[in-house]
Design a protein around this nucleic acid. Sequence first.
DNA 1: TCTGGCTTTGAACAATCGTTCAAGTTAAAA
DNA 2: TTTTAACTTGAACGATTGTTCAAAGCCAGA
Lengths: 199, 199
Amino acid sequence: MANNTKFDRDQVIDKALQLYWRRGFHGTSMRILQDEIDMRPGSIYAAFGSKEGLFKQALIRYTQLGSEHLQQCRSKTTSPLSALKDFMLSRVTDTQMSSPTCICLLAKTIAELTDENPELLEQAKASLKAMESSFETLIIEAQLAGELVQSQDSKKLARHVQINFSGLRTYIRVYGAQVPTEEIIDNIFAPYISNKSFH
Amino acid sequence: MANNTKFDRDQVIDKALQLYWRRGFHGTSMRILQDEIDMRPGSIYAAFGSKEGLFKQALIRYTQLGSEHLQQCRSKTTSPLSALKDFMLSRVTDTQMSSPTCICLLAKTIAELTDENPELLEQAKASLKAMESSFETLIIEAQLAGELVQSQDSKKLARHVQINFSGLRTYIRVYGAQVPTEEIIDNIFAPYISNKSFH
DNA sequence: TCTGGCTTTGAACAATCGTTCAAGTTAAAA
DNA sequence: TTTTAACTTGAACGATTGTTCAAAGCCAGA
């Protein structure tokens, strides 16, 4: 053994994530990144291989944080539907405060990149599919709890949520804080609310 | 008077539009652009001022083409609702064939750019608002024709369409051709279909 | 045919891009 | 204390970035 790594890997990835999220892949230069995460090029390349490598780690971290947040919302309430709504709302309002941009990093990435970065593209797509799958899990729970109708396929509902969620975040980027976010989120589920109740 | 302009301005903007649409603003270098539109830097800068200037023209052209296409769909049928559905469907399927990417250039632009390009950002936002306004016009027609319920505010319906349209285009970028586009578009309007008919 | 004024050309600019690597620094093991 | 292997540093690389401008080309009017 010898000298150990001095930087905090997670902290570095978090900072890179913020920067990539704000400025996009092509809009973020390694120079700006170096300043922001306070590492010299040699260290960055030793740790992450390339600009792409670091971006991939940022994508993975972003997805992980999203999953954790969803689980956290789930554990705060007995209602799966409320958990899903809370998640969507907080992702969108946090985003108007502290986050770099309202738009999901994954959606932003698949919009920006081409076949010239196939690995990053696939990572972003896979993460979006994983998130949709997590939505479906919650939707099935909501159906079993009698909150959502069972006549609709859970996969279709998850798709519906995914489409509306990403569309909403784009919409907010255009109109800003004047968007009645809560009302819109309620309306996403409104046609599928069940009047049954199991107690 | 003297020597006139030799290049076809509209044709050049169209080619630039395709390239910007495919590769994004930061992903498109002036060198690639020069090759694609077959103009030397001096001519480009004389005609458009800057990379931003040309991009702005591309945004304007994209919006104009969109509006024309919507009008074209409208004139092909007596049903305002069918016109709107046709527009959405063809934008999305054309896009899987000839277009550079499924994602709307305007949405792609507001996702990519930051305050560092305020003029382009505002142009894209304004164009998105204009398209939503065109949607609303069609929706009002559809309400008067008894195709859509009048109990819902036309502005809210236009917002709903805008959100779902941009969300759908992002969704298709992830899943590709396996997405049942027609079914999804129908479902966007399904909750608001009126059973009244005026004949 | 010549001239005047606009357009087009493309080499060249400084700045910045992503990346490399030899030299310096560090701390655990001997 | 010395050795040693891993980590950090930052100058430097060639390539590419957006942009400029003096020179060459072109055509309408005289």
